[in-house]
Design a binder for these strands. Structure first.
Length: 401
DNA sequence: CCTCCACCGGAACGTGAGGAGT
DNA sequence: ACTCCTCACGTTCCGGTGGAGG
């Protein structure tokens, strides 16, 4: 048996009696046979990149669209096709894919360049050198060949928000001073991102732009059916299930990834309930489970101070009707710290922590003014009532109360 | 219409971990 | 052993602000 099949052999062995044939097909890193409803974008990318086969520098390219609209998938497919043609012709063309959101891999300027260098076959220390030094190494590599390098920066908006657009300025100008032809494909979820970067970077990065519109419910249905064919055994899916998943995802900004996850979790739930089929009710359950798991995942890995803050919010929210305010949370938090001999953080810091919970969607914070009585965040918990008690208990245990 | 509360949020700075090079 | 890097996580400082109440 081929090495690459062994993993799926084990998996299939384990799920012999299950509803699934191959769960992988519903997972995010799966490469589908066909990419549906993205023909237009695929062609546009191909048009832009094709000159690289004549060893010309292709235009920089900027792709944007919501999460789960196939940006990464389409780009990866297009570039790998390109690379394989180039390889057949033994052309000096390289594509490098970097996801800027990966923690500890490419979420700072230093790490980004270090990762790029590694992908170009040059090992560098994970830390210790000045960033300047890495640029020098990179320039040397770029100068020593005439290759065309296509650098794909996924989730580029995340990195720019974090460290500013300075590095993009360097990157977009790099080809001017080296022999290599380096061009950049930026991928962003944030549609407004490009408007906030330096004008020179903007014009250079978005020489070409391609929009990935959200999938509509009909398109998501097609995608789900295609994957479900691979993922599930025959006759496992009740009528209406695909439609319901698709409708749900279409409501959530046409995010195909959500739809696939929903279907997978619904399948797991059906299986655990020893159901022979996936029913509509399993989808509702899956929806809840996904939300819940996400929170527990996040919360349990957070540092103590974060947990204390969240615990304060929950305690206050359940003790009191209506919204709560930053000041109350801080007071509660401080008394909690006193009780457990923890040195409390400053108000400023707690404010940031609350803002982070807001970003995670666990809490809903809105800045309001109470006139004479100041300005503050009005905070509500954006979780269903019944999961609140469980989360509170979970936190108590986690904190060792 | 102005004031002024109680916090927001940007910026600069400090500390300590993790590591390279000499 | 010592200097020089990055970077996460906090703190300190401070200007900014929407609107109830004078």
């Amino acid at each position: 048996m081929a090495k690459s099949n062994l993993g799926s052999y084990f998996e299939n062995f384990l799920i012999k009696d299950s509803l699934f044939r191959s769960k992988q097909a519903l997972q995010t890193n799966y490469d589908p046979e066909a990419i549906l409803h993205r023909d237009e974008q695929m062609q546009q990318i191909a048009d832009v990149l094709a000159p690289s086969l004549r060893m010309e520098k292709p235009s920089n390219l900027f792709l944007y669209g919501n999460t789960g609209t196939g940006k990464t998938l389409t780009t990866k497919y297009a570039t790998s096709e390109l690379a394989s043609v180039a390889k057949k012709q033994s052309l000096g063309l390289r594509t490098v894919y970097i996801n800027c959101k990966l923690k500890r891999t490419a979420d700072t300027e230093y790490r980004l360049i270090a990762q790029l260098l590694r992908d170009l076959g040059r090992e560098v220390p994970a830390t210790g050198l000045p960033t300047e030094e890495l640029y020098k190494i990179l320039f040397n590599i770029l100068n020593s060949s005439n290759d065309v390098i296509i650098l794909i920066l996924d989730e580029i908006d995340y990195l720019v928000n974090k460290i500013g657009d300075g590095f993009l300025y360097n990157f977009t100008r790099m080809h001017e001073s080296t022999n290599s032809k380096i061009s950049i494909i930026g991928i962003s979820n944030d549609l407004t991102f490009i408007d906030n970067v330096d004008a020179r970077v903007k014009s250079s990065l978005s020489e070409e732009e391609i929009v990935f519109p959200p999938y509509n419910a009909y398109q998501i249905q097609n995608i789900l059916r295609e994957r479900a064919k691979v993922a599930f055994k025959e006759d496992v899916i009740s009528p209406g299930v695909i439609e319901k998943c698709a409708a749900h995802a279409a409501r959530e900004h046409g995010d195909a990834r959500r739809a696939l996850e929903l279907l997978r979790v619904a399948g797991e739930i059906a299986e655990r309930a020893s159901s022979k089929k996936i029913l509509l009710a399993h989808i509702d359950e899956a929806e809840n489970k996904i939300d819940r798991d996400r929170i527990y995942d996040v919360v349990s890995t957070q540092p103590r101070q974060y947990q204390l803050t969240l615990f304060s919010i929950i305690s206050l929210a359940s003790a009191k009707k209506g919204a709560i305010f930053t000041g109350e949370i801080y007071d509660f938090y401080k008394s909690l710290c006193d009780r457990f001999n923890v040195r409390p953080l400053t108000h400023r810091r707690i404010s940031d922590i609350i803002a982070e919970y807001d970003m995670l969607g666990i809490v809903n914070a809105k800045i309001i003014s109470k006139g004479r009585y100041g300005r503050t965040r009005e905070i509500t918990i954006s979780l269903p009532k019944e999961s609140l008690g469980r989360l509170s208990q979970f936190l108590e245990k986690e904190l060792g109360l």
